[in-house]
Nucleic acid binder design. Structure first.
Lengths: 140, 140
DNA sequence: GCTTGATCTAGAGTCGGCTCTAGCTCGTAG
DNA sequence: CTACGAGCTAGAGCCGACTCTAGATCAAGC
């Protein structure tokens, strides 16, 4: 493959990652990036494809609830290079577990909501007789 | 069924809902409860079973990402009584959609993490030859 | 030459959701 | 009678993750 990109500006990266330019600078300050972004003339950031790829990963991790400090930790390990694979795997497996748990929790909540919806729907169908409730119309 | 409970103190409710007493008072101030909690002698809160049931629902909604203002809105509708079933259903269906979307997003993220885990694991198994990466060892 | 728009830095502000503090009142146990 | 623990209110504080502001720089187009 040829050189895919000569480097992207912060604005372009914002577009393709969905992060704001503010967030991009913020992430860099926070050490979420594996390395500080290369600078072009005038001190402007020039993102490599690799940076963008990493940012996409970060977006995914954030979307699945990984806090920034954990992502920074991950980045630290990658930055330090070989010899940390075990640790990296540990982090990833932990997150995997957390995401799985989240999905379970959400599935459970979804169930409850779905039940509530069908009981309301039934009530409406049966003609609007009887009080609305289903849960707690008023305290005592 | 007989009167199951003569009313619970805030501490007891905290125990059974998993919310802190602070959070319970906070929720009440925020109008998340359908009605302000009954007060016993000395102005202390006395929670009915219904209150507790409602709080359990709130905990579930929060756990599935519903913001407090939305829960308050829901509570408002319940409080206002009959004639708002449609609106209530709209709220619930919307949340249902959001939770479903969340689950999809998480499932996707889980996939990515799982892939990353297997590729790291493979690398480790193949003997520690080659660089760690997988994504972005360093910028440019 | 001048304006426009994107970028830069440092640092302040915002928002949601609690959490904690201070200072007071109860009810019960010793 | 006093000490404790639980509760009360009003309001301040905190944390995470951004978001925004001010004031400066720079490249490109008119």
């Amino acid at each position: 493959m040829p050189e895919t990109n000569p480097g992207l500006s912060i604005g372009q990266v914002a577009e393709r990652t969905g992060l704001s330019v503010h967030a991009l600078r913020f992430y860099e300050r926070e050490g979420v990036l594996v390395a500080p972004v290369r600078r072009g003339p005038g001190g402007r950031r020039v993102y490599s494809d690799r940076d963008v790829e990493w940012l996409h990963l970060c977006v995914n991790l954030r979307a699945s609830g990984m806090p920034l400090p954990a992502i920074r930790q991950y980045a630290d390990l990658v930055r330090r290079g070989a010899g940390n694979e075990e640790h990296l795997l540990t982090l990833l497996r932990q997150h995997q577990g957390e995401v799985t748990a989240q999905i379970e929790q959400l599935t459970e909540s979804l169930d409850i909501v779905t039940h509530k919806i069908s009981s309301y729907t039934e009530q409406l169908a049966e003609g609007a007789t009887g009080p609305i409730m289903c849960t707690a119309p008023q305290s005592s």
